[in-house]
């Protein structure tokens, strides 16, 4: 196994005092590894990946991302966020900016890149997700699938080492899921570390090195996709798989 890029060491998190959302999470992600996380809703999958770029903070344990331990230190958070891109279920594109402006915003304002260079790089990414002809449009003028591809391109503009996907296809019409998954599969072949919360089992089988199954804030089972789908070890994952694959 190559060197680790993300390390969870007994990480715990609570919402309020009573809701123990992450319980003793131990997880090591290797550089370039592609991980799919699944599990019932409320199991803590989204919270787990949102801890990686500090959209959520953990209260116990250690979380190290690319050699930097996440804490209240703002500098550490900024450093980690430079290396981590994220794609959301609801796209979260900026509706008042054009597609191109969505992509150039961070390189220009955070990376201090000249406008022209930022636009060239942005067009490269838009080409990569096959949507360059929409650059001048506003996000709400695009279909859901197109918007999500723009969101992926926007995250890629920062050249992240790690990409987090939080249910990227759950808000899409069935006809549009494929175009987004195709882009993600292409990305997966280029060596970037990916953590993806999804229930697209076809995608998991096609690209994941490892499938992690979570329930009630714990990692219940993890395995390579072939064994996980064909031979789940725990009762809980058997039950879950029978429900999502049962028809």
């Amino acid at each position: 196994m190559s060197e680790p890029i993300i390390t969870f060491d007994k990480v715990n998190k609570w919402y309020g005092n009573a809701f123990h959302v992450l319980r003793d999470i131990d997880l090591v992600v290797a550089k370039g590894e592609r991980i799919v996380i699944c599990g019932p809703s409320g199991s803590g999958k989204s919270t787990l990946i949102r801890c990686i770029n500090r959209l959520e903070e953990h209260q116990q344990g250690r979380l190290i991302v690319d050699g930097v331990e996440l804490s209240d230190d703002v500098k550490a958070i900024d450093q980690v966020r430079k290396e981590v891109g994220m794609v959301f279920q609801q796209f979260n594109l900026f509706p008042h900016l054009t597609v191109l402006e969505n992509l150039t915003l961070s390189p220009m304002w955070v990376g201090k890149m000249p406008k022209k260079e930022a636009e060239e790089k942005a067009m490269e990414q838009l080409n990569r997700v096959r949507i360059a002809e929409q650059a001048a449009k506003y996000p709400l003028q695009l279909s859901g699938g197109q918007q999500q591809r723009v969101a992926i391109a926007r995250a890629l503009c920062l050249k992240p080492k790690i990409m987090l996907f939080d249910e990227p296809t759950s808000a899409l019409d069935p006809e549009m899921i494929k175009e987004v998954l195709d882009v993600m599969i292409e990305m997966a072949s280029q060596g970037i570390t990916m953590l993806c919360v999804t229930h697209e089992m076809g995608f998991a089988k096609a690209v994941a090195d490892r499938v992690i199954f979570m329930d009630q804030g714990q990692i219940v089972e993890q395995n390579n996709p072939h064994d996980f789908f064909n031979n789940p070890q725990s009762e809980r994952s058997k039950d879950f798989l029978s429900k999502i694959l049962g028809h």
């Binding site: 915003l105 926007r154 920062l158």
Partner: peptide, 25 residues
């Protein structure tokens, strides 16, 4: 909230987020 979160993942500071993302909308 997603707008602020997206800005955070892109590395924008608090004031950049307010000025470029939140206040215009």
């Amino acid at each position: 909230k997603g707008q602020v979160e997206a800005a955070a993942t892109l590395g924008l500071s608090y004031w950049q987020t307010q000025r470029k993302i939140v206040l215009p909308q």
